[in-house]
Computed example of a mutant assay.
Amino acid sequence: MGDARAAEELGFDFVSASDHPCGSEPSYEVWTMLTWVAAATSRIRVATRVLGVPYRPPAMVAKMAETLHRLSGGRLILGLGGGYSDEEFRAFGLGVPTPREKVDGMVEAIDIMRGLWSESDFTYEGSRYRTEGATIEPKPLSPIPIWLGTYGPRALEATGRLADGWIPSLGFAPPERAAAMRERILSSGRTVECVYNVPFRLDGPAEGEGVVAGSVWEVSDRLAEFVRMGFTSMNFMPVGPDPRAQAERLATEVLPTLRPQTA
């Protein structure tokens, strides 16, 4: 909780958490944790990075999202994904969707959520999910932005057609691939915010693929390259010991030179 308050005090725009309920490493259920974060802060937005659609019925997520968005003062960013970890589905007895079913389910989930946020007696019949005369009240006071973490051709097409934002990870979509993916999304003609998940480490080794590491100037230059590619927002994940100190240095030594480039 202290990390979220510190992020708010440092001027970060949003704080996010991933959705991996199964595993041997200690973790918290993402929705419960972000509710706790929202209650302990006042300005910073809270984002799911990203919520695995197959874990929860979309109609229930629509209700959960409206409640958190309202009680947080309109600060929720609803990140969604098809769910890439087949091992987690299998471990929890949820069944393992095919890649096509994951994309279809993600699209249907968006249709259902937006339908419930805007209509009464909402009926929807999809291949994965359905509703029958469903109504949720109250409706959202302000739009709930949906960001998608997507990579494959069908999922990217759906992102360009439906999403408010696209949030790929550097490790899964390195710049040489991400540029082409972004073009595919924007070919829809819609405005889609492009947000890059970027692990970073200042004055230390990368210790793995997909980490931006080096001096303040090296990290700043690398992040500026991403801005020039069209990523006007980034989700920063500190790597290595003392992540809070890394976040503080990023906020005070790197972002002041980067923010003007994203305006």
Score class of each variant (00 low, 15 high):
residue 126 G to F: 10
residue 28 Y to P: 00
residue 108 E to G: 08
residue 82 G to A: 06
residue 20 H to I: 13
residue 116 L to Q: 03
residue 51 L to W: 04
residue 101 E to K: 14
residue 43 R to Q: 13
residue 61 V to W: 03
residue 56 R to N: 10
residue 71 L to R: 05
residue 85 S to P: 00
residue 149 G to F: 03
residue 45 R to A: 12
residue 77 I to L: 15
residue 69 H to M: 01
residue 125 E to I: 09
residue 83 G to I: 11
residue 61 V to Y: 02
residue 98 T to P: 00
residue 115 G to H: 09
residue 67 T to P: 05
residue 87 E to G: 08
residue 92 F to K: 08
residue 145 P to S: 07
residue 58 P to R: 01
residue 72 S to L: 10
residue 60 M to S: 04
residue 109 A to D: 11
residue 129 Y to G: 12
residue 147 W to I: 04
residue 119 E to G: 01
residue 35 T to V: 09
residue 61 V to M: 08
residue 34 L to P: 06
residue 122 F to K: 04
residue 64 M to E: 14
residue 102 K to W: 02
residue 111 D to S: 13
residue 146 I to G: 12
residue 100 R to A: 15
residue 30 V to F: 07
residue 155 A to F: 02
residue 136 I to A: 02
residue 114 R to S: 13
residue 16 S to T: 09
residue 36 W to D: 07
residue 88 E to Q: 13
residue 138 P to M: 15
residue 112 I to L: 13
residue 35 T to N: 15
residue 153 P to S: 15
residue 98 T to H: 12
residue 85 S to Q: 13
residue 59 A to R: 02
residue 106 M to P: 08
residue 67 T to G: 12
residue 12 F to D: 04
residue 32 T to K: 00
residue 98 T to Q: 14
residue 41 T to W: 10
residue 109 A to W: 09
residue 114 R to V: 14
residue 65 A to S: 12
residue 142 S to H: 06
residue 82 G to R: 05
residue 133 G to A: 08
residue 63 K to C: 04
residue 144 I to G: 08
residue 110 I to V: 15
residue 149 G to P: 12
residue 53 V to A: 03
residue 56 R to I: 09
residue 55 Y to E: 03
residue 80 L to N: 09
residue 69 H to R: 03
residue 82 G to M: 05
residue 44 I to Q: 01
residue 101 E to F: 05
residue 156 L to W: 03
residue 154 R to V: 09
residue 14 F to W: 09
residue 53 V to T: 14
residue 58 P to K: 02
residue 31 W to G: 06
residue 68 L to Y: 02
residue 86 D to Y: 10
residue 84 Y to P: 00
residue 18 S to I: 11
residue 144 I to E: 05
residue 29 E to L: 14
residue 124 Y to P: 07
residue 123 T to K: 05
residue 54 P to G: 07
residue 70 R to M: 11
residue 13 D to V: 01
residue 115 G to C: 10
residue 120 S to A: 14
residue 49 R to S: 13
residue 121 D to H: 07
residue 107 V to W: 03
residue 88 E to P: 14
residue 133 G to H: 02
residue 23 G to R: 05
residue 72 S to V: 03
residue 154 R to G: 05
residue 19 D to G: 12
residue 124 Y to V: 13
residue 18 S to H: 05
residue 135 T to L: 07
residue 129 Y to T: 10
residue 156 L to S: 04
residue 37 V to N: 03
residue 14 F to I: 00
residue 120 S to R: 12
residue 89 F to S: 03
residue 17 A to L: 13
residue 93 G to I: 12
residue 33 M to I: 01
residue 109 A to E: 10
residue 130 R to H: 14
residue 60 M to K: 01
residue 42 S to M: 01
residue 154 R to A: 15
residue 89 F to H: 11
residue 92 F to E: 12
residue 85 S to W: 13
residue 94 L to H: 02
residue 124 Y to N: 05
residue 99 P to S: 06
residue 14 F to S: 06
residue 142 S to P: 00
residue 33 M to D: 07
residue 92 F to G: 03
residue 98 T to I: 13
residue 29 E to G: 01
residue 126 G to L: 10
residue 109 A to T: 11
residue 48 T to S: 06
residue 23 G to V: 04
residue 62 A to W: 00
residue 45 R to I: 06
residue 48 T to H: 06
residue 32 T to F: 06
residue 152 G to E: 13
residue 147 W to M: 04
